[in-house]
Amino acid sequence: MDTSSSANGTAAAASSSSSRRSNRWMYEVFLSFRVDDTTFTDRLSIALRNAGINTFIDYQLKRGENIQSELGRKIERSRIAVVVFSKRYPESRWCLRELSKIMRCREDQEGIIVLPIFYDVDPSDVWKQSGGFAGILEA
C-alpha cells in the first residue's frame, strides 16, 4: 500500500472537513443578554471586536426582519454563544427562547459552545433554578 497517497487523501479529507466547518460559522461569538444589561454587553462586544473576534449582538438586526427566525439563524451560524445571565434575564421571554435555541444547537453534532457569564447573579440560582430563575422551564 502506498502510504503517501493515503496520507494525501487523509489530508485532503481533513482540509475539506475543516473548510466545511469554517464555512458554517458566520460569527465566532453570539451574545445573548437582557436589554437592561447593555452597558456590560456593549463593553464586552467592543472588547471582543477589538481582539479581532467576529461577534454578533442583536442590535445589528435590520428593521423589518423577522427577529425570532433571524436570531435563530444567527445562533446556528455562531461557533460560541456567550450567555450573560443577569437578575432580570429570566423575565424576558425573548431571552428564554434564545437560550432554548442555543441549547438545542449545543446538542447538535457540531454544536455551539456555550459560555455563561453570571452578571450580578449567583450561578447556583441558574443551575438550581432558584431565586429569580425559579420556574424558568415553564416560561
Rank of each mutant, 00 (worst) to 15 (best):
S45K: 05
V121D: 07
C95S: 01
G9T: 13
L71N: 01
V35W: 10
K62W: 05
E76H: 04
A14W: 05
E138A: 09
P116K: 05
S130V: 01
L99E: 09
R43Y: 09
S78F: 03
I117M: 11
Q129F: 02
L99G: 12
C95G: 09
N66I: 11
R104T: 07
E138G: 14
N23V: 14
D108R: 15
G131C: 05
G111C: 00
L71R: 00
I113K: 13
F56D: 02
I102K: 01
Q68D: 06
S16N: 12
E76M: 09
R88H: 08
S18E: 09
S19W: 15
F30T: 04
I112G: 03
D36L: 10
S124C: 05
R104P: 05
R106H: 02
S16Y: 07
E138N: 14
Y27D: 10
S4V: 12
S100L: 01
V126M: 08
T10Y: 08
P90S: 09
I53S: 01
R49D: 02
M103T: 10
D122S: 00
E98H: 14
R49K: 11
S45F: 03
E76C: 11
G9Y: 15
D58E: 02
G132T: 06
K87M: 11
S130R: 11
L31K: 03
R43D: 10
T3D: 11
A7Y: 02
I75G: 09
A14F: 03
A47P: 00
C95M: 04
I117V: 06
R88W: 08
E91N: 06
G132H: 00
N8T: 11
P116T: 13
E98F: 04
